[in-house]
Design a protein around this nucleic acid. Sequence first.
DNA 1: GAGTGGTCTAGACCACGGT
DNA 2: CCGTGGTCTAGACCACTCG
Lengths: 253, 253
Amino acid sequence: MGTTQLETVPEPKYWHLKTVLSEALDSEFAVGEILPNERDLAARFGVARATLRQALEQLELEGRLQRRRGVGTTVAPPRMGVAVGTESHAWPGAAGDAWQPVDCAEAVPPAAVADALETGRDEAVHTVRRSRMSHGQPVAAELLYIPEASVPDLSAIDAPSSVARARSVLRELQRLELEGQDRAVELGSARADDAKELDRLPGAPVLVVTTRFFAEGRTAALSVATYRADTCRLTFGASGGVEITHGPERQAS
Amino acid sequence: MGTTQLETVPEPKYWHLKTVLSEALDSEFAVGEILPNERDLAARFGVARATLRQALEQLELEGRLQRRRGVGTTVAPPRMGVAVGTESHAWPGAAGDAWQPVDCAEAVPPAAVADALETGRDEAVHTVRRSRMSHGQPVAAELLYIPEASVPDLSAIDAPSSVARARSVLRELQRLELEGQDRAVELGSARADDAKELDRLPGAPVLVVTTRFFAEGRTAALSVATYRADTCRLTFGASGGVEITHGPERQAS
DNA sequence: GAGTGGTCTAGACCACGGT
DNA sequence: CCGTGGTCTAGACCACTCG
């Protein structure tokens, strides 16, 4: 007969709690509505605050909730689709891309970046910061690494401001013929600077999109873009068309 | 002058801890090596175990560590690249795809899926489970939803086993002309069944890849694939070629 | 059975946003 | 100022793996 016990497993409290809250969110709350505070909620469910927080963290990770220190916990709108794979192979900064330059510096990149660019590990490259907005809020921060070799005619230019120099670098880049690109997506956590840009706390979950741009047989530029994982759904392909939304939704009045 | 205080912010302990551990991982540990247990580590750094765990959780989220209950914490190998965007538009189950069918059933899908498929919310569809291995371990679990309308000639077939029926459905699907597809990636947490398949605990972070397959002017199939976020880096584009790795690496002897 | 990570508790204080 | 979520503690017990 064996000891084939079925479902004898004690479900963790926070997991059960998450399920209960999730269903309540679907049926009893509208987008934008404020939940009771954590201490009250914990008391109501008869658990310690830490346990309740474990459930809330999961729901926030899934994009169902939004929590802000000093304010409260609100029901999040469904994730917004953010186009990433506009398969129109194009250089960053090309007409109509969704990014806007923030600043530009020359710095020695992390070793992993240097390896991908096939530059020396002590060699400085142009480092352009850009940010991306969608529906009025920041959704992504990007670091663009561009070796000197990709923009050889730039040295003459001496742009007044940092953002103007960023634009110069990008404009110079367009002159190369783009031979292809290469993308990867992985989970990461926001570095302190990215977090500030994304209006999140450091360590917040982000989707890291790494793109390599090929030209002249080399990697001519490398982009590392970090998207807010809580609010974004990255879309690939021609799309931009119909959107998939999840679950029932009601608008706050 | 204002109170422009610079860097007066006290960095959280777990954040600092994470940095320290991360550097130690780079310089003093080899892939596969076992770390001291959590109680010892906490004592060594003079913090509570919960605080140490917060740091470890972050590192695990970033794919630097791997923790298994009853075993210990080990240094994770760099994430493996998993090709997702083989831009060869092809039906699931086409020759050479990385998936293998597990079983097949007919069930009423979640409302969001029904909406995407434009089937009624009470209408049952073929639901094929598939799993994907890479380097000898499971990396993804998939649920494929296929409306009856997409495989009209299937009813005659009465396959003996569940997996055989899955293959029949996929084979039938190939007969349609694929007109395009549409992909989205977002962060999620593993449901209980997916978690088991992926050899993780429920709630583990996963990258959810949703693919819609278009044929005959409709959505002819919909795939929801959940990839282990800790071990996978999703790669798009023709690539499959050169791999980007991160940081210094050493092999355990 | 011994040792590991996973869950949970009941407190405390801090940092931040609004009033 | 008060109320919010964020961090932290020092314990306890549980579930799992392995020898």
